[in-house]
Design a protein around this nucleic acid. Structure first.
Length: 404
RNA sequence: GCUCCUAUAGUCUAGAGGCCAAGGACACUGCCCUUUCACGGCAGUAACCCGAGUUCGAAUCUCGGUGGGAGCGCCA
């Protein structure tokens, strides 16, 4: 039985009446009672009482209703709503706070797209306490820009203001190697010497195992050593693959690669290493090692997260709570590094900090306040809905938030 | 082709089966304030993609359709 049921009926009736110019409806009194635990078998008994209360309330003046509501309001429950200037709560937040990250590739300057999808992580660390890592993912010697390390650091200090630590993946290669070795030992990875084309057309597309997959552990370890060995496999001759399932219904999940050989000189490591981890290996290792609790990333990483989860499972580690943010696409702006780079080279822009460019360096120079990004992020909250906007609209919003 | 995500006003969103007669913000309209602009205050217009199903009850759950988006790299 519901406690104080008569008073609650009155309170709900008053609430409804006050919200609707002094007139309440019986449904608005009955419905919330179900929510309080009313059994539908009791409806018959209770309806007459509700009708009485409704009649009584409707005969009162609006002022009387308001006054009485004040007295009874605490009896009834209210819908929870998220305050407009607050982030939605994250689940499973440890007492020690959250550990989150932003993981850019140093292939060029950071732009508004990065800011939009990552400021929210920084805000959560601000909200709950914990750690916020910026992890520079420079495991592709071919695409790493030497100058990007410094600008990323400057941009992130300006934009977030609460970076716990900067981590550079190219300094952690031995760590990734040790995990690669463990995966081979656990029979969860193998060295594949098939050509890219064969692997896709003959095996992945046809859901067939490639011959390398079934070689025993000893042979796999030998092959792995041969990848590492300067006199071993040549570039493109072998790749370390995760042993997932070649019959996986999602083609993106079938024995994806974990590491490859690249002889290109790395801006920080030179030619010291020849085997470079691919993101799914290095990201998994780092997220495990750093104890990531929550990850908010772009929707485009949905399948990667699924792959990383498989790696976590091999090591019996719980996968962090993950949210996939919808992407903001600019109808009139090309954010791709390739496009910007090409445009700079062709002389269309003077450089990454050209004021016509939506890079963070440029915005900093133009005097934007990073608070604007924070407000934009809070208003958007956690959503996996994509949004197409033009730069004019976007900058109008930023300007408005800047002024506030 | 296969896998997956998603759908609330012009825009961004709140919303976890009844307390939704759908809330807020921006934009818009009107009024007030102000010498003007900005700010502020008050009022107003405006939305649950479509179709079935489950239920006493669906914006909310399920299925189908449609629209939008992502992935299927030795990039991240």
């Amino acid at each position: 039985m519901i406690e104080n049921i008569e008073k609650k009926m009155l309170a709900y009736a008053l609430k409804n009446a006050v919200e609707h110019e002094g007139k309440c409806q019986s449904g608005a009194v009955l419905n919330p009672l179900f929510h309080e635990g009313l059994d539908k078998a009791e409806v018959k008994n209770i309806m007459p009482k509700i009708n009485e209360v409704v009649k009584k309330v409707n005969s009162m003046s609006l002022d009387e209703q308001k006054k009485e509501l004040e007295e009874t309001e605490k009896l009834i429950s209210h819908r929870k709503v998220r305050a407009e200037d607050e982030l939605p709560e994250l689940p499973d937040v440890p007492k020690t706070g959250v550990v989150m990250r932003f993981a850019p590739a140093p292939s060029g300057a950071l732009h508004v797209g990065h800011a939009i999808s990552n400021v929210i992580s920084s805000l959560y660390v601000e909200k709950y306490g914990g750690k916020f890592y910026v992890r520079i993912e420079d495991t592709n010697p071919e695409k790493t820009d030497k100058n990007a390390y410094q600008t990323i650091k400057e941009d992130c200090d300006w934009l977030f203001g609460n970076v716990t630590e900067y981590i550079i993946q190219s300094e952690r290669l031995e760590l990734y190697y040790s995990y690669a070795k463990k995966l081979i030992e656990k029979n969860a990875a193998y060295v594949c010497t098939c050509s890219q084309e064969d692997f896709k057309l003959k095996y992945a597309d046809k859901m067939q195992n490639c011959p390398c997959r079934d070689l025993d552990n000893k042979e796999q370890e030998k092959r792995w050593q041969k990848m590492l060995d300067k006199k071993g496999y040549a570039e493109g001759e072998a790749v370390l693959r995760f042993k997932s399932n070649m019959q996986h219904k999602n083609p993106a999940m079938r024995d994806f690669p974990l590491a490859r050989i690249s002889l290109k000189e790395h801006p920080k490591q030179g030619t010291k290493y020849r085997v470079w981890p691919l993101m799914n290996l290095s990201v998994s290792v780092d997220d495990m090692e750093l104890g990531m609790t929550h990850v908010i990333r772009g929707k485009d990483h949905h399948d990667n997260a699924e792959r990383q989860k498989m790696i976590f499972e091999i090591f019996n580690k719980p996968y962090p709570w993950t949210f996939f943010m919808g992407r903001i696409k600019f109808s009139d702006l090309k954010l791709g590094k390739r496009h910007i780079k090409a445009a700079i080279e062709s002389g269309e822009f003077s450089g990454w900090e050209d004021e016509k460019l939506p890079t963070l360096v440029s915005l900093r120079k133009r005097g934007f306040n990073p608070i604007a990004f924070k407000k934009f992020s809070i208003q958007r909250g956690l959503t996996s809905v994509d949004k197409v906007m033009d730069s004019k609209e976007f900058f109008a919003i930023l300007e408005r938030f800047s002024k506030e």
